[in-house]
Nucleic acid binder design. Structure first.
Lengths: 358, 358
DNA sequence: ATGAAAGCGCTAACAT
DNA sequence: ATGTTAGCGCTTTCAT
């Protein structure tokens, strides 16, 4: 008798707390299970058209939003993906994240980000995501250290997709045809008439570095240009590394190069710094080309000629593939993306043009 | 009678599925509530030291990891923070994310990322996070469009902290003393002897842009240098904008400037491009200085003189503050960060040094 | 076509 | 100091 609370509850009344499925159901005068079936868009739902409408309307009126946490608990899935990146402020990784976020979002997943501090890779970064039951799958990227990745992938209790490279012992990956990209870049230099072409490389064990190095050698071989080890130095993937490697090459090369193929944007930027320090002009005295593209390539002086790399696509495909794995639509993800196109800008030109030095 | 299943369950048996609290409890011979109290490190726990140890040991043996989803459902918290960013491939935002991720992690939260597509700000980006019950709080950043942010913050059912600027109508924010940074930058130019100092500015309504513009004018006024509107052009925060604004200034200025203060890294990069296109030399003919710092500033040619901005700190403080808000330890977050220091590199020098033009 | 009921794994009163 | 109990909001058999 004391329960004669204001029962004329026909008003929207999304007063304070979020409406639950229960609220929707009672407002529509049905059981929660029925409401669930409708709202979830259950395939074989067999629900009366009229009730369907009533439920939908109630949901709308109450501004119902499913509680993902509850659903997660019930179906034992988190509907989120984790992505572990070693350096966030590197265009490669940010673009990868953009793509991954888009893929995840399209499929109703969220993207959870884990930054792996350089130098503390062993610690927990991957585990944090993998073992804490927070994600249904893991996208992993790495620079040079393979062992950590391998270990993490093994320990993960969820599907893992490796981005940006293929690796022995890891089944799923989306990677890039680095050697093809390198070949395109070097061929461009050769077409311009260069024969003394230097290469700033990655560490020469991991897959990416090797791929580009191979492409470099292949292109030279095709053109019948002999390979000169004195023209190669390891730069890694940083600006500083690029600058140092460039200096090494300039000092050690018997006959100095007229062009250089840098393994990545950062290395190329470093190289240009070093080159200009020596008073050498780009591209008059030395042409520079690299792989990967983006606003920074345009912003440098001179603007950089690059072979475009579908980095965002890689993130997107990785996310979609990972979700396919999670939801059992696929059992393996393995695809290689190809370089997009050569974008010729101001950093490359024919060798030895008669430009006077000031 | 038919329940004589293999009951000698003393083996570790983390065979397949994750161990639950229940598993731990029964292995330790206690009730789940007791196990919960211990494992959660409940303050006023009053649990026997001996049982405590037994529980801890069982948890370890079974490699128990709490199911956050279940806990979330129970306590009605997700333990995750959302961060919405307009452009991921911009050092400002990536550094902000790095900081935010660290703050969140330190407090046991995860960071969920939402990329706001340029041009589709209205859509759902913020709502996706805010209304889907996926996060306990929101970190928001924005470029120029305030209305969207305001609306999003209003609609959010969770606490919101605005990063990188203060805004009327938004209570919580972590921002940066832009005008102080601008003053430092411009004073540096003045100290070098410059008097014709251009400014590439942001849109002149939002807070950040105004702050820097104000700092620019203040520094000029302090030094008794008259303000010349012909030396100012709006660049916004992009490379392209920087290049265009620089060209505008070079064309329109009656007496050409000997130095330029660009509002941000990207604009400075664009400006340098434009400058070098005209065959003007940096810093001999024209000095360039900007606010914000990072590897890119070092990588450019010439390396850029900048006033350092604690961007990562901003993300970190934002995350910590947001969590304080969520957990009720604070009721308002409002702090202003100050510029770190002036880093003098190759892009600034005294005006009119007797350098011959080639 | 719809409802009843159980339960995902955890926490938090409330007993004892 | 420890156990009992209820329930967070949802999905999913199993009935009807």
């Amino acid at each position: 008798m004391s329960k004669d609370l204001p029962s004329d509850s026909l008003s929207p009344l999304p007063s304070s707390a979020r409406a639950t499925l229960n609220d929707v159901a009672s407002h529509a005068g049905v059981d929660v299970s029925t409401a669930s079936r409708v709202l979830r868009g259950d395939q074989k739902q067999r629900v009366g058209e009229e009730t369907r409408l009533r439920i939908l309307e109630a949901a709308k009126r109450l501004d119902y939003q499913p509680n993902i946490t509850a659903r997660s608990l019930r179906v034992a899935k988190t509907f989120s993906l984790g992505i572990a990146v070693p350096q966030l402020d590197n265009p490669v990784f940010s673009q990868m994240i953009i793509g991954a976020e888009r893929g995840a979002r399209e499929r109703g997943y969220s993207l959870l980000i884990a930054h792996i501090e350089e130098g503390f890779p062993d610690d927990d970064a991957y585990e944090r995501l993998a073992s804490a039951n927070r994600v249904d799958g893991l996208l992993i990227t790495t620079l040079d250290d393979n062992s950590v990745v391998l270990r993490a992938a093994r320990k993960a209790r969820v599907p893992v997709v490796l981005l940006n490279r293929a690796m022995q012992g890891i089944d799923n990956s989306i990677y890039f045809d680095s050697s093809e990209a390198a070949r395109i870049a070097v061929r461009h230099l050769i077409d311009l008439g260069h024969t003394r072409i230097a290469h700033l490389s990655g560490q020469l064990n991991p897959s990416t570095g090797i791929g580009r190095f191979a492409g470099y050698r292949d292109a030279l071989a095709e053109a019948g240009i002999p390979f000169d080890p004195g023209l190669v130095a390891v730069s890694g993937y940083t600006i500083k590394g690029g600058a140092e490697a460039m200096r090494t090459v300039l000092r050690q090369a018997g006959t100095s190069p007229t062009a250089v193929f840098a393994i990545t944007l950062a290395a190329a930027a470093g190289a240009i710094m070093a080159i200009q320090q020596y008073g050498i002009r780009v591209p008059e005295d030395l042409s520079v080309v690299t792989v990967h593209d983006g606003p920074i390539a345009e912003a440098m002086f001179p603007p950089l000629t690059t072979v475009q790399m579908p980095v965002e696509q890689m993130g997107y495909d990785g996310a979609i593939g990972l979700i396919d794995l999670i939801e059992g639509r696929k059992t393996q993800i393995n695809s290689m993306l190809h370089p997009l196109q050569l974008v010729v800008r101001g950093s490359t030109a024919a060798p030895g043009q008669p430009h006077d030095v000031a």
